[in-house]
């Protein structure tokens, strides 16, 4: 474990916590008898969260952590895997099933057919992988899928008029975690002999590059102290 990877994991955890906080805000908001101003805004405007991206992430974790009970790495590793699995599936459940949270989901805007991402990633994983075994192919599939999983969310943000802070921070943290992982891979490449994982590195690089324009608009909105807005 190195500082880059720990920072990456903590940033990833933060992104999940921000999303859970946002869902909690929506839930607690609607419970009120009177619509406070924030509540009114939250309930009226769509939450800006893409269910498609959340479902893709649940699939990413489900296919990546198949070894959670077979290969014990460390307590930290197991706990983090359980957190990511638990949170990703419960977020999907909230947006799909929870009587209040589902109202803030705008399915007319979240129209990305994520099936078109799953199939090519699966085919690619069958062709390009480190070892042609069931677990390894699904693990590679999870890497390719995670690289593109943010697309429905980024497209939804372009369509969302006013992106609220929590959603913007969620996407930023999600992009930042993988950027930190790239530093981790560079560090491990120079400090551990035989540590070479081209598939992981290239997928992680593509994933981070997909956030490039979001990062640009995110930092611009911070610098100019204006609302985050993505060009359509």
């Amino acid at each position: 474990m190195n500082i880059f990877r720990l920072a990456g994991d903590m940033t990833h955890l933060m992104s999940v916590l921000v999303l859970l906080l946002k869902i909690h805000t929506i839930k607690s908001c609607a419970g009120k008898s009177y619509p406070c101003s924030l509540c009114f805004i939250l309930l009226e405007s769509s939450s800006g969260i893409s269910l498609k991206t959340q479902e893709l992430y649940a699939l990413v974790f489900a296919t990546r952590y198949l070894d959670i009970f077979t290969d014990f790495i460390s307590v930290y590793n197991t706990i983090m895997k359980l957190i990511f699995l638990g949170s990703s599936f419960s977020i999907v459940w909230y947006i799909r099933r929870h009587k209040i949270v589902r109202r803030s989901y705008d399915k007319d805007q979240d129209t990305f057919r994520h099936f078109f991402l799953v199939l090519p990633c699966l085919l690619l994983a069958l062709i390009i992988n480190e070892k042609f075994t069931f677990k390894e192919v699904l693990w590679t599939f999870s890497l390719y899928l995670e690289a593109v999983a943010i697309l429905p969310q980024l497209i939804l943000l372009q369509r969302t008029r006013n992106i609220d802070n929590l959603t913007g921070q969620y996407v930023f943290l999600l992009g930042a975690y993988r950027a930190l992982y790239i530093l981790n891979w560079i560090y491990r490449y120079f400090t551990e002999p035989h540590y070479v994982h081209w598939i992981t590195w290239i997928s992680g690089l593509v994933q981070t590059l997909l956030y490039a324009d979001f990062f640009y608009y995110y930092f611009s909105s911070l610098k100019n102290n204006v609302k985050l807005k993505l060009p359509a």
Binding site: R5, D9, H12, R64, D67, D71, I73, N77, M80, K81, F84, E130, K131, T133, K135, E136, W139, Y181, N184, T200
Partner: peptide, 10 residues
Amino acid sequence: PLTAEVHDEL
């Protein structure tokens, strides 16, 4: 190593 490559990253 003979065992399948164990992925130690999340």
